[in-house]
Design a protein around this nucleic acid. Structure first.
Lengths: 99, 99
DNA sequence: CTGACATGTAAGAATATTATTACACACGAA
DNA sequence: TTCGTGTGTAATAATATTCTTACATGTCAG
């Protein structure tokens, strides 16, 4: 959960810099969901959702887990990590030092 | 300093989602600078810097101030706002509610 | 064996962001 | 008046992101 390099911070910010991805985070808040379910809920195509989930995962905001449901079907669940970041001029200045 | 709408949060994240802009923030940390000075320091062209400063300003991270120096020349100074944001699943979920 | 779900990816189109180049103008010093 | 410094913008090129479409796979229920 602790970001060490500037690159990691960048991935975080890039992940957050999109309205659909914010919506995904909000939708995942409190309840994990599987991909198709989430695509219906957010109202976008599944391939598009995959792209967004990848970016969110890269930013360390969500984590995916492929499971086999009772009836033998593969289902991939996504849930939020419990991230907690503090943004101030200082934290950002420190992040850039490691450039 | 308090973000109320999702749009404002988005502007903030978009402002942060770029390595040059992080560098600008770091460079402005502790000391305000004028545009040409900052361009030299960060190592980019002035027109490009303008674009980045606009985005940073839109995100509420910096503020510009056009002044007349003693010798009558117009000089535009930029400085950091003292922002302070807290990022958790909850704060983001709340931001999206106002959609 | 077909239909209804699920996972996943590849290729290309559409759009947005980033970067460069070429302009304008103003002031003071040489 | 020319040079060096500062301001600012418009037009375009280069690149990256976002989105769509079309595919391929698998399981279960009917």
């Amino acid at each position: 959960m602790m970001k060490t390099s500037e690159q990691e911070w960048l991935f975080l910010f890039e992940a957050l810099a999109n309205p659909i991805r914010l919506k995904i985070i909000a939708s995942l808040h409190g309840k994990r969901k599987y991909v198709s379910e989430l695509a219906r809920e957010v109202g976008i195509s599944r391939p598009l959702l995959y792209m967004h989930l990848q970016r969110l995962e890269k930013g360390g905001l969500v984590i995916g887990n492929l499971e086999l449901s009772e009836d033998g079907k593969a289902v991939k669940y996504f849930e939020l990590t419990d991230f907690n970041f503090h943004l101030t001029p200082q934290t950002i200045a420190e992040a850039v030092k490691g450039l």
